[in-house]
């Protein structure tokens, strides 16, 4: 097991890398080729207007459903990743509760077109104005800015796989019971990521990666917005929001 030996060999790191890449390929939700092919499919002005005319409740519910779908793939990614299921269940829950949304935000850069500042949403590419009825313009713009900045790194699929594994396996999350075990897995993933970047002459991106605080701040803003929405529409949240979404963010 990758978690048992204090010093992992190159072969073990290579094995972990292959395992993370495979887990990612199997759980990436949308194929990059398909997302690229659809890049020119943007919502028409009428379609954007129709989204803008939806009630705040309906738009929130739609977004909560799309986020929940994306999170289910992240849970599956974690489960297939070497070492994750060897952690105690408390720590699996802590890591997913804190990191699943962060991984979704990083994965979003694959579905983002920097050229026209649009993101793939419900079948076509949408600009930030489509989400107007949510009443969270500042948060939406921050998320778009974040996706734009990540796109400038030109991540490969393999880089996203290892980077998101590191977003998830973070030993500084509060309430971990077996911090040492998480730390060992995190160290091995860091070695795997750096080893891969060295092989592909991409070490320069290490200095350009988003700071951990940036992702944390976006997730915090999302939870704050949900809190305000819940105060206005407690019954909607209770009755129609996906249970997994409520469990993670309420």
């Amino acid at each position: 097991s990758i978690l048992e030996s204090p010093n992992s060999s190159v072969t073990e790191i290579e094995h972990l890398t292959q395992n993370v890449l495979k887990s990612y390929r199997e759980t990436c939700q949308l194929r990059l080729e398909d997302l690229q092919l659809l890049r020119l499919e943007t919502f028409s002005w009428e379609e954007v207007r129709s989204y803008q005319k939806k009630s705040m409740e309906e738009m929130w519910e739609r977004c909560a459903c799309r986020i929940t779908e994306a999170i289910q793939y992240v849970v599956e990614f974690a489960k297939r990743m070497g070492g994750f299921m060897e952690l105690c269940q408390n720590d699996q829950i802590v890591l997913l509760k804190a990191g699943a949304m962060e991984v979704v935000l990083v994965r979003m850069c694959r579905a983002f077109n920097s050229e026209n500042r649009t993101v793939f949403f419900e079948g076509k590419y949408a600009g930030p104005e489509l989400f107007k009825s949510l009443g969270c313009n500042e948060l939406i713009n921050s998320i778009f800015d974040f996706a734009h900045s990540l796109c400038s790194l030109h991540f490969s699929e393999n880089e996203i796989a290892l980077f998101t594994a590191l977003v998830l396996i973070n030993s500084s999350r509060p309430w971990l019971q077996e911090k040492d075990k998480v730390e060992r897995l995190q160290n091995n993933l860091e070695l795997a990521f750096k080893h891969m970047l060295r092989k592909t002459h991409r070490e320069s991106i290490l200095a350009k990666l988003p700071p951990k605080g940036k992702l944390r701040s976006l997730c915090y803003q999302h939870m704050e917005k949900l809190r305000s929405f819940r105060q206005m529409y407690p019954i909607i949240v209770h009755a129609v929001f996906p249970p997994l979404y409520k469990e993670l963010f309420s």
Binding site: Q72, V75, E76, K79, R80, M85, Q89, N90, Q92, I93, V94, L96, K97, W175, P243, L244, E247, L248
Partner: peptide
């Protein structure tokens, strides 16, 4: 924690889907 996160707990207990 597991008690408060029953769905996540269930997803983690299920085998690979």
């Amino acid at each position: 924690l597991q008690e408060k996160h029953r769905i996540l707990h269930k997803l983690l207990q299920n085998g690979n889907s």
